[in-house]
Design a protein around this nucleic acid. Structure first.
Lengths: 232, 232
DNA sequence: TAAAGCCAAAATTTATAAATAATTGGGCCG
DNA sequence: CGGCCCAATTATTTATAAATTTTGGCTTTA
């Protein structure tokens, strides 16, 4: 199974620092804490009900992951977004996941193909929005979406590379969240996932990689044009 | 110039947490703090003369970079080494830097070629060991060595990718430090760097990438065989 | 009058220290 | 062998102190 891929620490009791780290990260990625916002310790301490020690530990962890920028002696800020970064992240993801998918397919096993099929089926079944007309984020969708993409590259044979891909996915997730409400009606993302699955099952690496990269590029293009309005 | 590539924060005053972070990282990478060692707070506080706040902040940063492993409720340990990780890191570095070098060469400029030439010249001039017969680490060598490799991929156009490469270099550096004294007389690493430079200047991407990957693979092979004795 | 420079007060971040809580691991005893 | 208690360590809170940045007003100068 691949259900234990994303988080290594399964049954660890979790310290407060780890808990607050996860909450902060989630709030940043969903832009509940908007890009560029100052993260004042007093505000966060009462907002999340923690002491300064676990709070600062969480902020320091987020700093090395670049979700938070720490200005020495001047406190912490939520990392800014920019069109340039969106492009760089997307380009990098296309390169690296292209590579990882190729390797993954080279190591393909029957169990992996079956897991991928299941992951895709779950994705296909989960509605993107909780309401058909207006967009209301369905938190389950992101989970199964991530699982599908993680399974794709999961057999590449490099944990460091998988970790890097996960980080790229996180950083790009925030950009997606910024424009999703607007882009929701336009995009037909389900077909793209199906096409990728078909290519993988047909063992056509070149095609699979091309489709995966196209998928990421299209997503970025939609966000890119939206970003004009959002950054104004 | 490319002299400001590695560290973004040039003139920041640096907090204690940042200072202790850098010292700990250096001590772990050079194996002055050996793999697997328990990092007790009391010991570190007196060893480095800092309070627990900046210390824990530093440890938390190192945790997200995987130089330190944090067992929840059970303190921190220096990340272990293993032959498997050495192989994974090397494989990943070959993939990713191969990709980055190809991109870099596609974006090649005259200034870049000249910077590379200079970087190689400096590397060529700097002795590996302070003494000709026995090995005594020359700290300058690692600096110029890193600069040469960083310049090679510096034009790839992706800061996230460069950051990832830097992290891989850090993590592999520790393995090199473990076996360098033994491997010193055997290896003729100077020629390999020259060959890479030649291929780049000849604009032969395929050859340059192949030589770079061979360079990393050979290094790993030497360490790999040494590691039997070192892990026993 | 406006702009620039300067100084002191206020706010904030950073660091220390000490006390408390929580958890682990080992040893003892039944 | 299992359960319980104790010692050691880690995690967290709280309070406080030190250092630094920010703010706002004041003066000086163009």
């Amino acid at each position: 199974m691949s259900s234990d891929l994303p988080s290594q620490k399964v049954d660890q009791p979790a310290t407060l620092a780890t808990t607050i780290y996860a909450r902060l990260k989630a709030d940043i990625l969903t832009t509940r804490l908007e890009p560029g916002r100052k993260l004042q310790s007093r505000f966060l301490m009462e907002q999340y009900n923690v002491g300064q020690t676990p709070l600062r530990e969480a902020l320091n962890r987020l700093t090395t992951e670049e979700f938070v920028v720490g200005m020495e002696q001047r406190g912490f800020y939520v990392k800014e977004v920019s069109k340039e970064e969106l492009q760089e992240l997307t380009k990098t993801r296309c390169w690296v996941e292209g590579l990882a998918l190729r390797e993954s397919m080279q190591n393909a096993t029957q169990a992996w193909e079956e897991a991928l099929l299941v992951a895709h089926h779950r994705l296909d079944r989960t509605p993107r929005s909780l309401q058909p007309d207006t967009f209301e984020d369905n938190p389950d969708w992101e989970k199964v979406h991530r699982a599908f993409h993680a399974t794709l590259i999961g057999l590449c044979g490099s944990r460091p590379l998988l970790g890097f891909c996960e980080q790229l996915a996180d950083r790009l997730y925030r950009y997606r969240m910024m424009s999703i409400a607007k882009a929701y009606p336009a995009r037909k993302v389900g077909a793209e996932h199906s096409d990728i699955l078909q290519a993988v099952l047909a063992r056509d690496s070149e095609q699979a990689v091309r489709l995966l990269q196209q998928h990421y590029r299209r997503t970025a293009d939609v966000i890119y044009s939206d970003l004009d309005g959002l950054l104004a």
